[in-house]
Design a protein around this nucleic acid. Structure first.
Lengths: 246, 246
DNA sequence: CCCAGCTAGTTGTAGGATGATATGTATAAC
DNA sequence: GTTATACATATCATCCTACAACTAGCTGGG
C-alpha cells in the first residue's frame, strides 16, 4: 500500500519529505518511544521511494536524536528525555503566535547578553560593535545593508559575552526574525523610524563602553520591545518592559 | 589520495565520521562560506568510502543548515548567519568550559522563566509543579527517581510560561546536565545535600504560588548557582549571583 | 553581437549485491 | 532436563552501477 507524501507547494527533496512525515508521526505520539520503526524495505515500499532515500531520512532523524538505529535489529523511537541533540528548525517558526514567543525569548537572551557583555567586553569587542553601529547609521533608510549591520551589532554583543552558546542562539534567533521582517516590511514601511532605531543602538553602545551592566540591560530591553512593535509584534509588556534595573 | 578518517576509540558509523570531518573543516574556517565543496565523487575517493556514505554525511550537514546543495551545481558552505536551523549536540558539551557556559545559559533562561511563570501560571500548572516537588521530597536520597522529579519540576515551570521555545530549550539543557551529573556523582557524593536542594525548590514554588516574579527569579537564580556548585561547576558569579531583584 | 541548442558535469533517485551484527531456533553434548 | 554450540534469519551498513533531473558554459548559426 503506497502512502502519498504530501507535496504541498514546496518542492523539497524526497528524503526531507520522508523525514518530515516520520517526524510528525513521532511528535504527534502515533509512534511511541520504544516503538520499532518499520524496516527500511517496508518504508521504501510504503512511500514508493528507494531505500537510499529512506536511509537518508533515517540518518536525519538520527542526527536529530529522535530515533536510534541498531544494526541487525532495527530503528527505535527515542523518548524526548534521552535525545542527545536538539535542533530548532526555521520552518517551525511560521506558526501564528510564534513570532511573539520568539521575540520574548530574544528579549530575555539579549538583555542578559548585553549585561554580560558590559562586564566582559574587551577593546576589540567594542571596536567591532562600533563598526557595526557606524555602518548602520551611515544608511539613510532601513534597507538590506543597514539590516545586516543591525544584526551584526547584536551578534557582536553576544560574542563579547564569551559564551558561545549565547552567541549561537542569538545569531539564529535574529536570523529568523530578519526573514519574517523581509516579508512584513512590504506592507508596513518603517523607514521614517530609522533615527529611533539608531538612537536605541547608540544608547546600548554607550552603556557597554561605560561598562554598566544595568544600563546596558535596560537599553537592550527597551530596544527589543521597540523593535518588536515596529514590525507589528506586541510583546506582553508586563514583564520584559518593566526593567527598572536590578 | 585517500584521507584517513580518525577512528579514535569510538566506533561511529562512516557517514557520521565524514560529516564530523567536514563539519570541523567548516567550523575552523578552512572552508569559507560560499566555497563549493568537492563533488560527491571526489569526496568518496578522498575518504575511501562509497558515494552513498558521502551523501548521508552531506544530508546531515544540510539538515544542520551548514551547507546548501543545489542539484546540477554542487554543495556550498553557508555562513552561520544564514542557517535555517540550529542544533546543539550533546557531544560538544564534553569540551572543557562548555559546562560552565551551558549553566550560565540555563541560569539566564530559567531565572526569567520562573519570573514569567509566576505571572502566568494557572492552577493546573501549580498542581503539576507541586506534584513534582512532592515526588522529589519523598525521596531520602538524591537518586534516579528524585532527579527525574527535579527535572520535571523545572520543565513544568518552563511550561507554565506558555512559551514553547523556552520549554523546549530548557528541557534539552536540563537533560544534558543530568547526564553529566550521572558521572560526576560517582566521585562526589552529595546525598547529604538533599535537604538543601529541596529547600531551594520549595522557595521557588512558594514564590510561584504567591505570584511574585521578583522573588521567583531570585529563588531560581540562587538554586541554579547552588546546583552548579554542587556538581563542581562554578559559575562566574559576578553577574548571575548578584540578583538583588529588579 | 546575440541567442538557441547542445554538451559535459553534478546532484538526485533507483535497485541490487554483499558484509556486519543481533536474535531466535534447533541440535548435540552432558 | 539443562546447557552450550552451531545455524538460519532478519536487519542495518556499505558498496556498486545506472539513469533521471538539472545547471552552467560552450558552440555554432543568425
Amino acid at each position: 500500500m503506497k502512502q502519498r507524501l504530501a507535496a504541498i507547494g514546496t518542492v523539497e527533496a524526497l528524503p526531507h519529505r520522508v523525514a518530515a512525515f516520520l517526524s510528525r508521526e513521532i511528535e504527534s505520539g502515533e509512534l511511541n518511544p520504544g516503538t520499532r520503526l518499520p524496516t527500511e524495505q517496508q518504508l521504501s515500499e510504503k512511500f514508493g521511494v528507494s531505500r537510499n532515500v529512506v536511509r537518508e531520512a533515517i540518518a536525519q532523524l538520527r542526527a536529530d536524536g529522535m530515533i536510534e538505529a541498531r544494526q541487525g535489529v532495527g530503528a527505535f523511537v527515542l523518548a524526548p528525555e534521552q535525545r542527545a541533540s536538539i535542533r530548532i528548525d526555521g520552518e517551525a517558526l511560521k506558526a501564528t503566535g510564534n513570532m511573539e514567543r520568539l521575540f520574548e525569548l530574544r528579549c530575555i537572551l539579549e538583555a542578559e547578553s548585553a549585561a554580560l557583555a558590559a562586564e566582559r567586553r574587551g577593546q576589540e569587542h567594542l571596536d567591532a560593535i562600533k563598526a557595526a553601529l557606524d555602518r548602520m547609521s551611515g544608511e539613510e533608510r532601513w534597507e538590506e545593508g543597514s539590516i545586516d549591520a543591525d544584526l551584526l551589532f547584536h551578534r557582536e554583543i553576544a560574542r563579547a559575552t564569551g559564551n558561545n552558546y549565547i552567541h549561537t542562539f542569538i545569531s539564529f534567533v535574529c536570523e529568523q526574525i530578519r526573514r519574517s521582517i523581509h516579508y512584513a516590511r512590504l506592507t508596513n514601511p518603517l523607514h521614517d523610524l530609522v533615527e529611533v532605531n539608531v538612537g536605541e543602538h547608540v544608547r546600548i553602545y554607550e552603556a557597554l563602553v561605560a561598562g554598566d551592566p544595568t544600563a546596558a540591560e535596560a537599553a537592550m530591553r527597551a530596544h527589543i520591545v521597540g523593535a518588536a512593535s515596529r514590525v507589528g509584534v506586541n510583546l506582553p509588556a508586563s514583564r520584559p518592559a518593566r526593567s527598572t534595573g536590578r
